[in-house]
């Protein structure tokens, strides 16, 4: 009965540079969403409820109990909302890979803003833009001058612009993990120290992976997943397929591997790893079964895109977070 009397939590969900999958993952708790609604008022969630930014601006500081912020910081609007929500929120959660470590949008850091604009507004096969018009940050319309977001050169994870309380990784986070974390907050359980990664274990994917693993980790040839006939049982690495599982934190329930696809690293680094891409590169290179420089180079030739392979989700939070 006491629970009923407790004031409802105020929950906000926001998407910055994101695909929308994170918002869907919240919906993916299905009927449990009703349990969420029972204890929390959704005060802001652009994808689902009609509340404007100016409504958020009017909220008192610290008004929102929990904000699940998904998406990376790609433009000035993302940054503005991150700062605004930080101000208005008690517990700010970087929700999903993009807010956590940069995610797929972060792959844009292999290019500069100029390269992206040139490609998108001039060169792309479907572009018709004879005047080579580029996005503007302000535009005159009948009603006056409009300010538009500025596209940044760098994609950033959320904690590059504001302090983050917790990280809930995944692309998208496993819905159950969201629910567990949410329930813990609602019930006022002992929360982990600030800046913790939640909804994960301390171990890496292999700990949950049921494929057969041995110490035979020597590779003469690397394969893309479609180039092998996967037996569904043997460790991907032992089949020469690059799997980021050992350098990726567990918590997703090895969804990809169970679906016979190697882990691509969306759950981010294990606790003691600063740069999971570099760690994985080190491990993968060590597995190469050759000592002759030419042979080594030949084998490495088979890894077409080391940057995109090893930093698929983590480029903006890597030691080299973009090309120079």
């Amino acid at each position: 009965m006491g629970k009923e009397e407790k004031p409802k939590l105020k929950l906000a969900i926001y998407w910055a540079a994101a695909c929308g999958g994170c918002c869907v993952s919240v919906l993916d708790v299905h009927e449990k969403l009703l349990d969420v609604i029972a204890v929390a008022d959704l005060v802001f969630w652009p994808i689902a409820i009609d509340i404007k930014y100016k409504d958020v601006e009017k909220m008192p500081d610290g008004y929102i109990d929990v904000t699940l912020f998904n998406g990376a910081i790609r433009n000035s609007e993302n940054e503005y909302m991150a700062r605004l929500l930080r101000l208005k929120t008690k517990i700010l959660v970087a929700y999903g890979s993009c807010a956590h470590i940069g995610g797929i949008p972060g792959l844009a850091n292999f290019s500069t803003r100029e390269e992206i604009f040139k490609r998108v507004y001039e060169e792309s096969e479907s572009t018709v833009n004879p005047d080579k018009i580029r996005p503007q940050t302000e535009v005159e319309v009948e009603e006056g001058k409009l300010d538009l977001p500025e596209f940044f050169n760098d994609v950033m994870p959320l904690d590059e612009v504001v302090c983050v309380d917790y990280y809930l990784p995944g692309c998208p986070p496993q819905s159950e993990r969201f629910f567990e974390v949410f329930t813990a907050i609602v019930n006022g359980l002992d929360l982990p120290p600030k800046k913790s990664v939640v909804g994960v274990t301390d171990k890496s994917q292999c700990d949950d992976c049921e494929r057969k693993k041995t110490d035979n980790k020597l590779v003469k040839r690397f394969y893309r997943p479609h180039e092998i006939e996967d037996d569904g049982e043997t460790c991907f690495l032992e089949q020469g397929v690059i799997c980021l599982g050992p350098a990726t934190r567990s918590g997703c329930g090895v969804r990809c591997i169970k679906g016979n696809a190697p882990c691509r690293g969306c759950y981010g680094p294990p606790p003691d790893v600063a740069d999971p891409g570099a760690k994985m590169m080190s491990a993968i290179a060590t597995m190469i079964d050759a000592n002759d420089p030419e042979e080594i180079e030949e084998i490495i030739e088979q890894i077409d895109d080391p940057g995109g392979t090893f930093y698929r989700y983590s480029l903006p939070s890597a030691i080299l977070r973009r090309t120079i």
């Binding site: 590169m281 290179a285 420089p293 080594i296 180079e297 490495i300 895109d305 080391p306």
Partner: peptide
Amino acid sequence: LRRYYLLQKYIQQMG
């Protein structure tokens, strides 16, 4: 040596 070659490929990709 093995790491060196992979790292070489990566740093060149990074510019």
